[in-house]
Amino acid sequence: MIKVLVAKPGLDGHDRGAKIIARALRDAGMEVIYTGIRQTPEQIVQTAIDEDVDVVGISILSGAHMKLVPRILELLKNNNSDVAVFVGGIIPEEDAMELKKSGVVEVYGPGTPISEVVERIKGYFEHANV
């Protein structure tokens, strides 16, 4: 069973994408925890640890990703967590590259087929289990 935390850091309330992803992952047979909006990096990381999830999916549209995502990565690292981090939202290409360099597994922009995200997460764990 893959357990996923879908989290919305920052102040933007556009949760359409986060909710769609949460539902699609459920329909793909995963257990999905949704945090709701306006989560601080501290809340997200503590939740990921307490819920012992395999994946954290971060949805962010406000443009604050370069502040918030690195902070989440840093806190995960402080907790020795090896949870896989995915990011979705309006993320310019150069930012996406930087985030991937610092440990984000994948960054998804608008228009990404949900099936692609689902397959990528599934594939990530099949691969990891080998």
Binding site: M1, A22, R23, L25, R26, D27, A28, G29, M30, E31, V32, I33, Y34, T35, G36, T47
Partner: peptide, 10 residues
Amino acid sequence: TGGALLGDRI
């Protein structure tokens, strides 16, 4: 599907 949405935490 066996999947679940766990939303009580919100």
